[in-house]
């Protein structure tokens, strides 16, 4: 009887240990900042996951112009735009919480809503 009690208690403790360890590992290896938001003319027009197994297209239409945004398995990017310099398109996929995709002519911002990885800078000087 006492042996059984010891086994049960040991099992419970081992289970707690495994759960805690699993939690730590998930926290450590999980990719943060997946939630994104898209702002057009200062208004949030989309919030949600920044990746999608099937491509999702969002047209950000503002008084200044139109940006076609694609969310796919690799992330989010501006696929096309009617702005003059196309810097937003050239930026490619959104890579980090500290470096949003910005289209100045069309007043568009695509950014992660989280603070991103712990080692990431708080801001970028450019």
């Amino acid at each position: 009887m006492r042996n059984k009690t010891v086994k049960i208690l040991s099992g419970v403790c081992a289970l707690l240990f495994a759960v805690a360890l699993g939690f730590v590992l998930i926290q450590y290896f999980s990719v943060s900042g997946e939630e994104i938001e898209i702002l057009s003319d200062g208004k949030v027009i989309y919030t949600g996951k920044g990746v999608s197994a099937e491509p999702v297209y969002i047209d950000a239409v503002s008084a200044h112009g139109v940006n076609r945004i694609r969310i796919d398995a690799n992330g989010v990017l501006v696929e096309s735009a009617d702005c003059k310099n196309l810097e937003c398109v050239h930026m490619g996929y959104l890579k980090s919480a500290y470096m949003p995709i910005v289209c100045l002519p069309n007043n568009l911002v695509i950014r992660y809503t989280g603070s991103g990885e712990a080692s990431a800078p708080d801001a970028i000087s450019r």
Binding site: Y98, A120, P121, D122, A123, I124, S125, R126
Partner: peptide
């Protein structure tokens, strides 16, 4: 209480 971390592009 830490310094701000600023990246240089």
């Amino acid at each position: 209480g830490n310094d701000w971390k600023i990246g240089i592009h």
